[in-house]
Design a protein around this nucleic acid. Structure first.
Lengths: 154, 154
DNA sequence: CCCTGAAAGTGGCATATGCCACTAATGGAA
DNA sequence: TTCCATTAGTGGCATATGCCACTTTCAGGG
């Protein structure tokens, strides 16, 4: 610890997490490059794929993302014909989402490249270690964090 | 495992990481809300703070972020008067960065709220566990990942 | 000293995400 | 049935990030 410690380092859990996300994101993005999909888009297609014509709100909840953000994120995928939406039969407020045949095909294509990247990653850190990390991250993501209501003087 | 497993799930390390990042990011963002800073901006000010008038490239490297992305990210902070840049004495290509007095003040202000959030988080997961997670994330971020050069037939 | 390739940033363009203000539908309560 | 609080999305605006094409400087080699 001669100087200011090497890399990023604040002990901030959030900063550390984002830093890792940028790093890993670049790797998966590179891997998926040939498909023209970003790793985020791949993740979105996959999520839709494993769900049963989910409502937007359902996806947003599963991915812990803002509903409006989801809407924005979906646009390029809809524009490119990978995803389509349709109204729910019973509740006209609800918009459901599904992959188009092209979307399914693109996902299949991407899965091949993804699995290579995934394997590459697990070879480096160890499959078990990776699984533990994912479990820890899921646990963190699902934490019910709340600020102390910032009420020291009220 | 009745249905499609609960939350986000693909076993994708990247997707899991991003999901956690969105979740945790929201928490820290809320915590820093009163300061008007996003958690990302807080992290940036902190990084600049612990460095010694770093060159842009140095910051980008430490945070594992694209140099141009760094430039974009810095703009709001410069516009708001928290950060300023100045040319390196010896190399005119290099632009160095530092906090302004207001930036330092804002950072001090933010640190108080940040520490509350940080403590809150560590109370939930345990300080030791949190440290381990950060270490794991730093390790992942610093991995030298490379795709198999996609050369099956060349 | 001139030319060339590397290094450091900038700008433009595109996606990722969030928050807020609104609008459209719903599901009761009165 | 009418009216209101709630729920689901949309659009606008702003920040976060990346990649690519340039432009400006440097550092060397000849």
């Amino acid at each position: 610890m001669t100087e200011a410690r090497k890399p990023g380092f604040s002990d901030c859990n959030n900063a550390t997490l984002r830093r890792a996300a940028r790093s890993l994101g670049r790797f998966y993005d590179d891997a998926l490059g040939p498909t023209g999909l970003k790793s985020t888009q791949f993740g979105m297609l996959f999520q839709i794929h494993i769900s049963d014509e989910p409502a937007m709100g359902t996806i947003a909840e599963a991915l812990i993302m803002d509903l409006s953000a989801l809407g924005h994120t979906l646009k390029p995928l809809i524009r490119d014909g990978y995803v389509e939406t349709f109204p729910d039969k019973d509740d006209r407020r609800v918009k459901r989402v599904r992959l188009t045949p092209q979307g399914q095909a693109k996902l299949d294509e991407a899965l091949k490249l993804w699995s290579v990247a995934q394997r590459q990653f697990e070879n480096k850190v160890g499959a078990e270690q990776a699984a533990k990390l994912r479990a820890a991250l899921d646990a963190v993501a699902d934490l019910d964090l709340e600020m102390p209501a910032a009420a020291p003087s009220n």
